[in-house]
Amino acid sequence: MTTDVQMTVNGARHRVAVADDDLLLDVLRRLGITSVREGCGVGACGACTVLAEDHSVSSCLARAVRYDGVPLTTADGLAEDDDVVEEFVAAGAMQCGYCIPGFVLMGHELLAQNPAPTREEIAAHLEGNICRCGTYQEICSAIEATARRRQAENERRSA
């Protein structure tokens, strides 16, 4: 069966016809959202990560029909001056960049739930993301740096 659904991606609404077994990953890529990527296809690498109502989801294991009207965020929809992205750039946390959108979104999810994570907590949250270029240290540093930056901004604001 095909259903007309509304995909709400980074605030933009798209009406799309999706088959019952269409994966969210494929539907998003058909919409031109190529920051969502296929790696393992079985939930283990994080290249296909999207945030659904601020919760990370592997879009390779998710059926699109279930996300009718659910606000989705993908890495390419983040603000031009997104703090996590800026800290990734500053830390040099990437080589080929294939995995990075997934890591950036996982970083956003973690910092929303835990504004001051320890290095261990960062590693635990990223345990299901794989970087074949091996920039893990820099990625963890970038997330730590974002946490520090947000804290400094909060202190400035409340001062």
Partner: peptide, 9 residues
């Protein structure tokens, strides 16, 4: 179990 994304779903 698994990783945070699998646990979310």
């Amino acid at each position: 179990v698994a990783n945070p994304r699998v646990r979310n779903t």
